[in-house]
Write a protein that binds this DNA or RNA. Structure first.
Lengths: 215, 215
DNA sequence: TGTACATCAGTGAACGCGCGTTCACTGATGTAC
DNA sequence: TGTACATCAGTGAACGCGCGTTCACTGATGTAC
């Protein structure tokens, strides 16, 4: 379906309502998690009947897709902006953490347990790679002082399929991967509340991992 | 309610049915995730009516609690057994990975996005700490060659509340935390399928993190 | 060993709820002449 | 500027479904004398 001229009042109203639906959806997700997302509940909250939302989203899955897309977009922009205003690798890492803490369920929608029965569309992986590229660039800049495992860089050197479109020294890729997995490790355990039982300070752990990464 | 003598036939039948309910529950979780768990569906699968299950579990939450407890118990035993049969730290780490890959949703039930609306009971944290102790012991044994961040060990030295019951050198705690968060980082991203888009080999990453940890 | 009673597993009906989604329709808004 | 028509937002009823949970009841299994 080709959408018409977006400058007509009707079209502006459409995008406005779509935006409000998604706003309510985020509130719902923040409260009860993504699997509890309900079109009817959102409609009720907006003072409309349930079926009305089908003017704006084909079905529940399309709404989730749009939410995933928006979240990726927002994270990609956040990191891009930080990088463009001079943030180094630790700066980007902290921007990531801030973003995650601002709305834990939004972070978990992207990187947590997959929503059962929902399959992410291909085009979101493009944005996901945009995020990767921003981080890899920062990794490349931070390189000299960083160490890299030899077994891993062998794997990465052979790793043409994906890396071909994103030329970067294997050491930068190795740093990126360690950064990504380690920060996600701390972040996801923090968001799931697994440190509270043992009374650890997640921020200290996060900073410690960051310091270790940069040698 | 005090349960009676567990050796009477009736009592043995009870525990047997409870076990089968949980078996079916695991199948369901493995397929559709924990939030899709349904008492009625389990009953139907067992050829019984829905209300029958209320003879065995007070409600849905109690079933989930029992599943969480069983998962923690199983993981704790797996690691304990591995440690007792001479596994070192990398051995324990690989046992953890094997356990997670055997049933991803089971791992995610413990360490993934929390089930919305469900609050874990206190007594499961005891088993969770048992797991931590097993790993910390292995960390202590692996110590000499491992490095530790100074900012982190300061935090850990001040960290009496939890560590008092589990005396271990701060360096061992630091190693344990790095181990836990890093392995979880790789594992959870692997289980969520986030490496497939970039065609990375999760096992290589896992081993690389392990090698880095042990200096 | 046999009878009387208590215990307990499991059933079927019912309650109230919310879900996603389809469909025929009303009424307002925009468009073309 | 006014009229005729097309477009589209939103409604209400309905479908079919599954959920957790309660309740009165049947029938089988165990217990006590």
């Amino acid at each position: 379906m080709a959408t018409s001229d977006p400058n007509t009042p009707r079209e502006r109203y459409r995008t406005q309502v779509r935006a409000e639906v998604m706003e309510r959806a985020w509130e719902q997700i923040a409260t009860a998690g993504a699997s509890a997302l309900s079109l009817n509940a959102i409609a009720k909250q907006m003072g409309m009947s349930g079926p009305a939302l089908y003017r704006y989203f084909a079905n529940r899955d399309e709404l989730i897709t749009e939410l995933v897309r928006e979240a990726y977009r927002d994270l990609a922009d956040t990191l891009r902006t930080a990088a463009d205003t001079g943030a180094d690798l630790p700066g980007l890492a902290r921007a990531l953490r801030t973003w995650a803490l601002a709305d834990p369920q939004r972070y978990l929608l992207l990187y947590g347990t997959p929503v059962p029965g929902y399959q992410a569309p291909e085009d979101t992986t493009a944005i996901s790679q945009e995020i990767a590229v921003t981080l890899i660039d920062a990794c490349t800049a931070a390189l000299p002082s960083a160490a890299s495992s030899s077994a891993l860089s062998t794997h990465l050197a052979d790793h043409r399929t994906w890396a071909a479109d994103h030329p970067a020294p294997p050491e930068a890729l190795a740093l990126f991967l360690a950064l990504w997995t380690r920060l996600h490790g701390v972040l996801s355990l923090e968001l799931a509340g697994h440190f509270t039982g043992m009374k650890f300070d997640a921020e200290v752990l996060f900073e410690s991992e960051l310091a270790t990464l940069l040698g």
